[in-house]
Amino acid sequence: MTVFDIINLFGLQVKAGRDQLHQAITGGYASDLLSDVIAHSQKGNIWVTIQTHPNIVAVAAMKELAGIILTGGREPDKETVHKAQEEGIPLLVSPLFTFELVGQLYEKGISGMNPC
């Protein structure tokens, strides 16, 4: 499954990174603690969070994540959108809360089984 596929499946809004949507998703990672994402996420993960500040893009770029989904309809900071555009990180928004969105992603076969 690619980032493009989940955008269509879940009606996600695309805020940045439109030219990077072909990336395959290796799994999912849900967390609002950046240090945790840095420590445990895997390359190609789609990251689900409510954090909106620019540092999320730096983390996603460093860990080579497939993209970021902001939940609860949270709007990213302007600076975050700008940075995501620059870094080519897909930045997406869902109106659903983290629990529900992750539940639906999981149902479609995206796993969060990263080694602890």
């Binding site: 849900a30 689900v48 659903l96 809360f97 992750v102 539940g103 992603l105 999981y106 969060g112």
Partner: peptide
Amino acid sequence: YMMFETCGILYEYGLKTC
């Protein structure tokens, strides 16, 4: 389990979101 997997499994078992 990681948070992603935890949410996924509980959702699958029918737990509803707030």
